Amino acid sequence: MNELSPIERLFNTFDETAATLQQELSCTYLDALAETAENLFQQKILQDEMSDLAKKRVWKKYEETKLAGYSKEEIRQAYQLAILKGMQENVQPNHQMTPDSIGLFISYLLEKFMRGKKEFAILDPAIGTGNLLLTMLNRQPEASVSAIGVDVDDLLLKLAWCGANLMEQPVQLYNQDGLEPLFIDPADAVVCDLPVGWYPNDVRAADYELKAEEGHSFAHHLFMEQSVKHTKPGGYLFFLIPNGLFEEAGADKLHRFFQKHVHIQGIIQLPLTMFKNKQAAKSILILQKQQEGVLAPKRVFLANMPSMKDRQAMQSIMVKMDDWFKESK
């Protein structure tokens, strides 16, 4: 019989205790997962309404689970698997998680662009469950990174908060619409899997340069403008964008906004095999906020990313990017 991996063992703890709490508290699996994650972090059972038998059952699992024996990445992956299970049970359009492979590649890009910085701040204005931001924080061991996450969905934000606690990552979280005024310091870098679609609050959208001339504005356009506003001059932005971004309504206005405020550093199209259909396909857009003395790159880095499983093709992309960096810096 094969022994379970550390990720599988920890996932089983999350899964079994969340299932017990779900039954005891009459709540969703995701709500129960957040509760059990907080119990595990606090090393006590915080739910008084549970029966003594259920408390004994979950406490036994907690005692068997020593978080100190797991790496931050093992904790993140086990927690992510449990969140994915919960999302499959209760599918909502805004409950989507950025795939791991994309998070790992954006982490690589962040490392490249922030090389040499010993300390920096990163913002995710639509953090969701925090998987993308936490992937990036876990992979920046050489730098001291502080992070801010914003989300309007209180359950997703609670899952992000509990995950950050378990991984002991310093993240400040704000439960609000990311397009409302943000009372935060500008960040050195922004990362965002942009919420794609219409933004229903026309009054709020009216304050943005990228608002639609009539009808609802695109939320993903407004999130890009909000992100640029909250980035330090010379800072970098990494967006997951729909492939049709530059062909859709408002693209001309978006192009003028970019010319005025940012330098496009690169566009990397992700493999179509990563998405359910062609319409859902995305690319990574890399921008740099304009700053006096900072010139646009001699050429924009453009690439079609191969399958992550094709190591040779991935290596080739990395080599091309290294060459581009040497040429641009």
Rank of each mutant, 00 (worst) to 15 (best):
M1N: 12
M1T: 14
L4Y: 11
I7K: 08
I7G: 07
E8W: 00
L10P: 09
F11S: 05
F11C: 04
F14C: 01
E16W: 02
E16G: 08
Q23C: 04
Q23S: 14
Q23G: 13
Q23P: 07
E24Q: 15
L25E: 10
L25R: 11
L33G: 04
L40E: 03
Q42A: 12
I45P: 03
I45T: 09
D48S: 15
S51A: 13
A54G: 05
K60H: 07
E64C: 05
T65D: 02
T65E: 09
A68C: 09
Y70F: 15
S71F: 10
I75F: 05
A78R: 07
Y79P: 02
A82I: 06
I83R: 00
L84Y: 01
K85M: 00
K85R: 08
N90D: 14
Q92C: 01
P93H: 08
N94H: 13
H95Q: 12
P99A: 12
P99H: 00
L104W: 06
L104H: 11
L104E: 14
I106R: 01
I106A: 01
S107A: 15
S107T: 00
L109W: 08
L109V: 08
E111I: 09
K112F: 09
K117S: 10
F120Y: 13
F120I: 06
P125D: 04
A126K: 03
G130Y: 01
M136D: 00
L137N: 05
N138V: 08
A143Q: 08
V145L: 00
I148L: 00
D153I: 01
D153L: 01
L155Y: 02
K158P: 02
C162L: 06
G163D: 02
N165L: 14
E168N: 15
Q169R: 15
P170Y: 06
V171M: 00
Y174M: 04
D177E: 06
L179K: 00
L182D: 03
L182T: 04
L182G: 10
F183A: 11
A187S: 11
P195I: 12
Y199C: 04
N201L: 01
V203Q: 14
A205I: 07
A206R: 13
A206E: 12
E213R: 14
E214K: 15
E214A: 15
H216W: 14
F223L: 09
M224E: 02
S227A: 15
V228Y: 03
V228C: 03
G235L: 07
Y236T: 06
F238S: 00
I241D: 00
P242H: 10
N243C: 07
F246Q: 00
E247R: 11
E247H: 10
A249G: 11
A251C: 14
K253E: 07
L254C: 04
H255S: 13
Q259V: 08
H261N: 15
H263E: 02
H263L: 08
I264P: 10
I267M: 06
L270N: 03
L270T: 09
L270D: 04
L272Y: 12
K276L: 12
Q279Y: 11
Q279V: 15
I286V: 15
I286E: 01
L295G: 13
A296N: 02
P297G: 03
K298N: 13
F301A: 05
F301Q: 02
P306F: 10
M308V: 13
R311V: 13
Q315V: 05
I317R: 09
D322E: 14
